[in-house]
């Protein structure tokens, strides 16, 4: 007999809410890059206002998790499930902020900046999205093998970021009048890199859930 059925039902609802929040952050990053490449200021504004909805969803997940802790007084793995729900929703909210920051850079760049947005940003974004997928699957199935893979992908994103920054530094030397615009592009690369970092935090939370100890995937 499975006892505490109500608790299990509420836990799985919470899990569902987190997964859907993750999919929304994915979409937001996708759209923020689209707006950046297309110099679409309207879209960038939409992204900024959509991010506040994600903030509210994060708050709701936090409230639900805290209520479950208070009412059900979970221990061991059940307690860790709720602790990581709090952590992961906070990571997802920060990921949404990074997408929003790319939209802000798009607005700063304006419609007439005359720069080609570095194509490697798309590659970085694609890997970052793959990392969200991985981290959410790892969360859904409580699978630490998937969680560990995030570490390798994060190294890849870090090295791509390093390469882009080097190229942009050279660009500022040849095009000093464009420095403001190049900076915004470099910031955007940084936001994608931070976005990817948060997925490794999610991976760390899964490891904590399963192993009961804290491990670092982002070294």
């Amino acid at each position: 007999m499975v006892a505490r059925e109500q608790f299990q039902v509420e836990l799985s609802k919470l899990r569902g809410d987190i997964i859907s929040l993750a999919h929304e952050t994915e979409k937001l990053l996708e759209k923020s890059l689209e707006a950046l490449y297309n110099q679409d200021i309207d879209m960038a504004n939409d992204i900024i206002s959509y991010d506040t909805k994600l903030d509210q969803k994060e708050l709701k997940i936090n409230e639900d998790a805290i209520l479950l802790i208070a009412r059900q007084q979970p221990v061991a793995t059940d307690l860790r499930r709720l602790i990581i729900a709090l952590r992961i929703s906070s990571d997802l909210e920060r990921m949404g902020d990074n997408a929003k920051n790319i939209a802000k850079s798009t607005i700063h760049l304006g419609e007439e900046h005359g720069l080609t947005i570095h194509p490697a940003l798309t590659d970085m974004k694609n890997i970052a999205l793959k990392m969200v997928d991985l981290s959410i699957k790892a969360f859904e199935y409580e699978d630490i093998t998937l969680a560990r893979k995030l570490s390798e992908l994060d190294d890849l994103v870090d090295s791509m970021y390093g390469e882009i920054i080097r190229e942009m530094l050279e660009e500022t030397a040849t095009n000093p009048q464009k420095i403001q615009h190049i900076m915004q592009m470099a910031f955007s690369a940084r936001y994608i890199e931070r976005f990817a970092d948060h997925t490794t935090n999610i991976g760390e939370s899964i490891l904590y859930l399963v192993k009961g100890e804290t491990l670092n995937l982002n070294e």
Binding site: M1, V2, A3, P74, V75, A76, D78, G212, E213
Partner: peptide, 19 residues
């Protein structure tokens, strides 16, 4: 025992899954 028990049955009991 209450944070990371070694045995699945301990975990089930302290989590209120049976008993």
């Amino acid at each position: 025992i209450f944070t990371n028990p070694a045995h699945g049955k301990t975990e089930d009991y302290i989590s209120g899954r049976f008993g």
